[in-house]
Design a protein around this nucleic acid. Structure first.
Length: 561
RNA sequence: UGGGCCGUCGCCAAGCGGUAAGGCACCGGAUUUUGAUUCCGGCAUUCCUAGGUUCAAAUCCUAGCGGCCCAGCCA
């Protein structure tokens, strides 16, 4: 399914855009941008923003969405992240064409415009220390006080700002601040910092600059320079909108447009964490294997887990765009994957907890090649051959000596259908003489039941199996939710979010028998292990002929005891 | 008595003055060589609360209540 073919969602932002178009604002242009800071990898929350921004642009014949790195804080940013972010956006199915930008592309222009603000008496060089500035800022309930440097003359401000750029002051000695209103109830308007002195190597501009502009100053101007029409961001920037507008208003003569900032609520997902800080803690503290650990909600993690781009896009469509706080259930995400894979994933059989079965009425060397469909509904997926031999493995919990009510699987003296093969009857349970543990089952196979129901009786159970003589053995990783509670990041949950890590979020099973055909499974090719779930060869750890399977999601199971 | 924003089913979410869409989850039931899928059916006399306006309110007004965000030279 192409990105374009997916059903178009509607939401309050798209409604605003339609209205703007109807009023012929922006000459009918629709230009959005996805502006990540390259200081971490993308997660599903970013996917929501990506789908919104690129999705909106795709809806209009001349719509565009820029990918712009918001790289104004070199101390925290790395080139590796600018690579991984591009890979993730592309993998999700979006294309920025030639519109790849960096806020750092605009450093020179940003600097010039800062001089314009100084010249207009709207910005000044402040020599307060960081602590002093905090003190002067006031609190949420008390107004701030004006900096003693607030009324420095234009000439001196200009000289000092140029000296800042020239590297004549140590880091942190001065800042450039906007002259707005220290008594504003909106703290962002209390003379916000525009530039700081920081001798840090920048991944794009190297050592050309020792002063760096702040987000608030940079973002609105970058948007304007790129001709963005709708600057979509999350709710926490609502309080920044007055500043966004203030800067663009003061620079009106210098810039050709004034983009509209619209905020929407960020995505929260149950049983995981989404904040960059917490994700970083999980990675650096080795609570997970890396940014692409399949238990993480990162794009690369979901990818490794076996999520498809279409399933993530569909998820983002289903959750919608609003301003309401939202905590989405993991079940919705999982359902999106199942929905995609149900149609598209070929089926195969694997036994994760093997119990040996001996088919007594077959000769030792019995070998029957069964031709079976790769998908029960989708014939286009073709067929494959699987060997039926005298000994096979079935799932240990598909047999019960003392079955619970409603048990439809194998019981002593009972019958069950082997998926894609014959009906068998359990004749005898073989036990370990010492431990009394069940070691194997002796069964009789009814050769009249291939592709047809047995005479005069009903067999309701169907179980999967793998030949004990002809199979390959693989490692299987069973993933579960990373946390034990729905909102681990909520301080009301008590303790640190790390206290709620699920100790059983990963179970590694070694040497599990699966169909021989699976030895050729390629990384990222999802397959359904029948009756178990969807699995996907790990793209990091699989080797040719030796796949390692990650369980992406289990099958829905209405048989819960 | 700082500012901004938000409150419609367990979770998302339509609705924008004309008498509560949809998806997920859940519960039935049918079909089924995956207890899967598919299919049918059920699932808010009620929209945070209380008043008010109106023939008519989730939608308008007023007053409350609850929740989220903001005091980086982070984004």
């Amino acid at each position: 399914m192409s990105v374009n073919a997916e059903k178009k969602p509607t939401d309050f932002i798209r409604t605003i855009i339609e209205q703007d178009l109807a009023r012929n604002l922006n000459d009918g242009r629709v230009v959005t941008r996805f502006p990540p800071e390259p200081n971490g990898t993308l997660h599903i929350g970013h996917a929501k923003s990506i789908c919104l921004n690129f999705g909106v642009a795709l809806q209009y014949p001349n719509g565009r969405c820029h990918l712009r790195f918001d790289d104004t804080n070199p101390e925290k940013e790395e080139i590796a992240y600018v690579q991984s972010i591009q890979e993730d956006v592309r993998w999700l199915g979006f294309d920025w064409g030639t519109n790849l930008f960096y806020a750092s592309d605009y450093f020179e222009r940003l600097y010039e415009l800062a001089e314009v603000l100084i010249q207009k008496g709207l910005a000044y060089v402040c020599s307060l220390t960081a602590e002093e500035m905090r003190d002067y800022r006031g609190t949420l309930t008390q107004p701030g006080r004006e900096s003693p440097y607030r009324n420095r003359g234009v000439t001196e401000n200009l000289e000092m700002f140029r000296a800042m750029r020239a590297g004549r002051y140590p880091d942190g000695a001065h800042t450039l601040r906007a002259k707005i209103d220290m008594s504003s109830p909106n703290i962002n308007m209390r003379d916000p910092t525009l530039y700081r002195i920081r001798r840090a190597h920048h991944h794009q501009t190297g050592d050309r600059w020792c002063i760096y502009p702040t987000y608030d100053y940079t973002h609105c101007i970058s948007d304007a320079l790129e001709g963005i029409t709708h600057s979509l961001c999350t709710l926490e920037f609502e309080d920044h909108r007055p500043l966004y507008d203030w800067i663009l208003d003061q620079l009106q003569g210098e810039l050709s447009c004034h983009p509209q900032q619209i905020e929407f609520s960020r995505l929260e997902l149950e049983f995981t964490v989404m904040s960059k800080r917490m994700l970083t803690t999980l990675v650096t503290g080795h609570h997970v294997s890396g940014w692409d650990d399949p238990r993480l909600p990162t794009i690369s993690g979901l990818r490794r887990r076996g999520y498809t781009p279409a399933s993530i896009r569909n998820f983002c469509r289903l959750i919608g765009i609003t301003k309401a706080p939202n905590y989405v259930e993991m079940a919705l995400l999982e359902n999106c994957l199942r929905e995609d894979l149900e149609l598209n994933a070929p089926r195969a059989m694997a036994v994760l907890d093997p119990l040996r079965v001996i088919l007594d009425n077959l000769p030792e060397d019995h070998l029957e090649e069964l031709v079976v469909a790769n998908h029960p509904q989708n014939d286009a997926l073709g067929t494959r051959k699987i060997p039926l031999t005298r000994e096979l493995f079935i799932e240990r919990d598909d047999f019960a000596e003392h079955p619970p009510k409603g048990f439809k699987r194998l019981v002593p003296g009972g019958e069950v259908r082997l998926r894609n093969a014959y009906v068998i009857r359990c004749q005898e349970v073989i036990r370990n003489p010492q431990t009394r543990a069940i070691e194997a089952l002796r069964c009789l196979v009814d050769l009249e039941t291939m592709n047809k129901a047995p005479e005069g009786r009903k067999v309701k159970g169907v179980i999967h199996w793998v030949s004990a003589q002809r199979h390959c053995k693989v490692q299987v990783r069973l993933y579960d939710r990373l946390f034990t509670i729905p909102q681990p990041a909520d301080p009301k949950a008590g303790g640190s979010f790390l206290d709620h890590l699920n100790p059983d979020s990963l179970r590694i099973l070694e040497d599990r028998p699966v169909e021989e055909s699976l030895a050729r499974a390629q990384p990222e090719q999802q397959v359904q292990f029948e009756r178990l779930g969807y699995f996907c060869p790990d793209r990091r750890d699989s080797k040719p002929g030796q796949p390692v399977f990650n369980r992406s999601v289990s099958l829905r199971d209405s048989w819960k005891k």
